[in-house]
């Protein structure tokens, strides 16, 4: 079972190159943007002077805030791209093997349909987040190195300004929890897209999104309620990782800034509240039901 899963995960890695190519591209883009902004910033003498003069004067809170903003930016950008990647991966995961008819080869091996679907789930919940997390760390470390070179070139102290600012572990841990919690929170969508991928004969992208848009609209028009739209759209932006607050609200009202300076952004995260959220578990159950349906379809569908 475990040996099969390792082999199946390798298969996903080989087959879906975007699992590593997309995060790698995001790292490249992020680091290029960071470098460009520093080069452009170097053109402004005042900013440079501020950086040099202020290097020893900036207090620890401000240094932490600066680093959290920069490093957190990488986390959010790569996390968003991870979710886009996950959607496309799930829609393709069980459709591609039917499209190229290789499903008959895969099914000629002593691997159950359940094992195959589990490997797709593990890819969505573990492999993609793991690669994305590695990409975040790489982007953060590369940008820190580039900033260090820049600060040194300006006569500042990178050790004092950046590396000893006390925000690195905070940012790394925040990225880890954020990445993992997003995937688990959006589990029902992962299950749904896998089911669509297993069952549709064509256009998985269209058939994956059309019901998500049309059914809540029909519900509102016919019944007058918004239960489905709340379940789908509100859920997708209301990650219960920050004690009932949205990340965007924390950024807008400056609480994340205060936390970064004073206590670290990890203090905003409520892991207990997240894990005990009924919505999280309900979402995982929905994911399980869609995944079971995908197993059923793969097993009983006639591929000839």
């Amino acid at each position: 079972m475990i040996g099969n899963q390792v082999a199946l995960l390798k298969r996903e890695f080989w087959e879906h190159r975007s699992i590593w190519a997309a995060p790698a591209a995001m790292v490249l883009v992020s680091v290029l943007l960071a470098t460009t902004s520093l080069v452009v910033g170097s053109g402004f003498k005042e900013v440079v002077n501020l950086a040099i003069v202020g290097a020893s004067n900036i207090d620890a809170g401000e240094r932490r805030h600066f680093l959290v903003a920069v490093l957190g930016g990488f986390t959010i950008v790569i996390a968003l791209s991870m979710w886009v990647l996950t959607v496309f991966y799930c829609l393709d995961a069980l459709y591609a093997e039917r499209k190229d008819k290789s499903i008959l080869f895969w099914r000629s091996l002593p691997i159950t349909d359940t094992e195959t679907i589990v490997s797709k789930l593990l890819t969505a919940f573990l492999l993609i987040p793991a690669v994305s997390y590695a990409a975040i760390l790489l982007a953060q470390l590369l940008s820190l190195i580039i900033m260090s070179v820049w600060v040194s070139a300006m006569g500042g102290s990178p050790g004092h300004l950046l590396w000893n600012a006390g925000a690195l572990f905070d940012s790394f841990a925040f990225a880890f929890l954020f990445i993992l919690s997003i995937q688990l929170w959006l589990a029902p969508f992962i299950g749904w897209f896998l089911f669509v991928s297993a069952s549709t004969k064509r256009s998985p992208l269209l058939l994956g999104f059309l019901p998500i848009l049309v059914v809540p609209t029909l519900e509102y028009m016919v019944v007058g309620t918004r239960l489905l739209s709340d379940a789908i759209f509100v859920r997708s932006v209301k990650l219960p990782l920050f004690g009932g607050e949205r990340l965007s609200e924390l950024i807008e009202d400056g609480r994340i800034e205060v936390a970064a300076e004073m206590t670290g952004i990890l203090s905003l995260i409520d892991v207990g509240g997240y894990l005990t959220s009924p919505s999280l578990w309900l979402g995982l159950i929905v994911c399980g039901l869609f995944s079971a349906a995908a197993v059923f379809v793969r097993r009983y569908r006639d591929e000839s």
Binding site: G3, K10, E15, S102, L104, S108
Partner: peptide, 28 residues
């Protein structure tokens, strides 16, 4: 038991080495 359903069913994206690795890992 093993079977060939059609010559065209091997996945086209895979490398020969990867294919052999996969079957080695999954077929006792």
């Amino acid at each position: 038991i093993c079977f060939i359903a059609d010559v065209a069913v091997l996945p086209r994206w895979i490398r020969v080495e990867q294919l052999l690795d996969f079957v080695t890992a999954t077929h006792p």
